[in-house]
Design a protein around this nucleic acid. Structure first.
Lengths: 205, 205
DNA sequence: CAGTGTGAAGATGTTCACAGCG
DNA sequence: CGCTGTGAACATCTTCACACTG
C-alpha cells in the first residue's frame, strides 16, 4: 500500500503520451498543455496532469509542458533511456511479424536472437537476425545477457520454453501463447491475447 | 450507472475462462469448481464466481459448474454463438500474421476479405484469401455485409482507412496502428498497442 | 458438507474544482 | 491570467465472509 502509489493504468498510458510527444517534436512544437494532449488522445486533461504529476512537477503553470523535457522524463520513468535486448522464441506468424515490427526501434527494444524448432526455419535470416535452433536456447542466453524473452510458440510448447528462459536467468517474459505460465515470483510475465480485443469489441456491438 | 452493471474487466476475463473451459472439454471433464478454474488462471475463486454470477446462476451449489453449459453460456454472453466476418486492411507483417492466426477460428472470427495498396501484394493469396486493391475497399464492403474491420496499415494511413470503413457502414474496428482514430460515437474501436506490454514489463523490472 | 452466490468492506482508479504559481 | 498540481468526492473493481442450497 506504500511503495507502489502509482496506478498501473497510469503506467500503461505513458507510452501513449510518449508517442504523442514524439509527434509534437517532429512538428517542432516546444510546449504542450494537458488540454492539447487530451484533445488528441482518449483521456481528459485532469487525467493527463494527474498521471504526469505522480512523477514530479514537469510542467510550468500558465504555460504547459516542455515537449523535449517531457519526452526525456517519460523515457526515464519507463526505463526507456537504454536499449532492451530481447530473445524471441518461435518464428511463426507472430514471431516473424515481431522480428520486423517497426514500433520497437524508437522505444529501444531490439530482438537480438531468435529461435525456432523447425529445421526449415533454422538458419534463415529475417531482418538482421539469423534464426537459431531452440535446442541451444539456454546455452546461448547464458552467453549473452538478455533480460527479456518473447514467447511466440504454439500453446503446448509455451510452458517448456518459459521454464527454459527462467533457467537461463531471464528477468521478464512477454507471452503471446494463449497459456497462463507458471514462473517464479521474481520473473515478470506480460500476457498478450489478441482475441480479447475482438471478443470485447463484439460484446459491445 | 444503471444498464451497464457489468465490469469491463469481467468481459475481458471471459475469453480466458472460455479457453480454459475448452481445455477441460477436451479432457472430458464435465464439472469444474471456481476453485479449480482459479488455480489454473491468474484470478482467485471469488472473482470467478462473481464474474459468472453477473450473468445468471450457472453453477450448482456443492458441485460447481457444468463445463459444457458454461461454454455455451460464455459464448452466448460474448456473442460468440455466431460467426463474425471481418475485413482486413493492410497485409504487411501484422496483417499477414492475422490472416493465418489460429486463435480466431474457435471463437468464430473469420477474415473474409483483405486489402492492400501495394501492387506486388494485391492478387496474392494467403490462407484462403486473395488480397484485393484497397481502392475498392468501400465498394466491396458495401457488397458483402461485414461488421468488423481490422486496420493494420502504417500509422499515417490509418485515419483515412477508418473514415472509409465508417463510410461503408462498419460497426466495429480493431486498430493495430499506433494512432488514435476519430470515428462517430456509434462505431466501436479497440486499440491494440503491443509496445505497451513491453513498456509495462520493463517498468517493473 | 462442499461449493455457489452475494452484500458489504476495501482497494484502486478517475473526475473535479480550485488553490497556487509563473 | 492561464495552466499546472492536488485533495477530496466519486466511480469502478476486487476481496472476503458467510448465508444458502443441492
Amino acid at each position: 500500500m506504500t511503495f507502489n502509489e502509482i496506478p498501473q493504468e497510469t503506467i500503461r498510458r505513458l507510452p501513449m503520451y510518449l508517442r504523442k510527444v514524439y509527434e509534437l517534436l517532429d512538428k517542432d512544437q516546444s510546449q504542450v498543455s494537458s488540454e492539447q494532449l487530451a484533445r488528441e488522445l482518449p483521456v481528459n486533461s485532469p487525467q493527463v496532469r494527474k498521471d504526469l504529476s505522480y512523477f514530479g512537477d514537469f510542467g510550468t503553470r500558465g504555460v504547459g509542458y516542455d515537449v523535449q523535457n517531457l519526452a526525456r522524463e517519460i523515457r526515464s520513468i519507463l526505463h526507456l533511456d537504454r536499449t532492451w535486448p530481447m530473445a524471441l522464441v518461435g518464428v511463426g506468424n507472430i514471431g516473424s511479424a515481431l522480428l520486423t515490427y517497426p514500433g520497437f526501434e524508437k522505444k529501444g527494444f531490439t530482438i537480438e536472437m531468435a529461435f525456432d524448432q523447425a529445421p526449415e526455419i533454422i538458419g534463415q535470416t529475417i531482418g538482421q537476425i539469423t534464426i537459431e535452433d531452440v535446442a541451444n536456447l539456454e546455452t546461448r542466453l547464458r552467453q549473452e545477457d538478455i533480460p527479456i524473452g518473447i514467447i511466440a510458440v504454439p500453446s503446448p510448447a509455451a510452458q517448456n520454453i518459459a521454464d527454459c528462459l527462467v533457467e537461463a536467468g531471464i528477468e521478464g517474459i512477454v507471452n503471446f501463447a494463449p497459456t497462463i505460465l507458471q514462473v517464479p515470483e521474481e520473473v515478470h510475465v506480460n500476457q498478450v491475447d489478441i482475441t480479447i480485443e475482438f471478443c470485447e469489441l463484439v460484446y459491445y456491438l
